[in-house]
Amino acid sequence: MNVFRLLGDISHLLAIIILLLKIWKTRSCAGISGRSQVLFAVVYTARYLDLFTSYISAYNSIMKLVFLAASYGTIYLMFIKFKASYDHNHDTFRIEFLILPCVLLSLLINHEFSPLEILWTFSIYLESVAILPQLFMVSKTGEAESITSHYLFALGSYRALYILNWIYRYYAESHYDVIAIVAGIVQTVLYCDFFYLYITKGIYGQ
């Protein structure tokens, strides 16, 4: 554990909490892509199956459980409790165009051809593009509430901080995972346009 990794995890946790609080406080999930949230639930489920097979640390297990619970909690709020506020009409990104290539790629490029390893790889690939329905929704409506922007900024920062963590680990521990690194860079690049808008609007727009 290094400071970049810790900050990345905190940023990730913050993003999830911001989203849950936003939906809970406003009793509405307007402007939030249910499709992205479903993809994130798939990502966490596929990746954290190793909760049953390998123990790393209490921190690791607790964080995994929190991410799973928060993700399914978000889905419950969006699709059941505050279903009426869900913005179907603007959430139209075809997620099969993301899922199928990720399935294919994880079968072709992985560290080991075993079920858990393929699921882990699939989750890494899918996570890198899971935000696209949300970004598509924001660009389609041409606006995002400031709280949604904070959510996206925290969520994007998480993988950017992980890149710093990977650079650190490469030099300090000779540890690297090419699949995670490449997918993490793709994931971060997808947020660049949003980061630019968030920073320039945040500073000059108010």
Partner: peptide
């Protein structure tokens, strides 16, 4: 020391 199956990150 690159390990295949131990993914210690979240």
């Amino acid at each position: 020391n690159f390990t295949l199956t131990s993914h210690d990150e979240l």
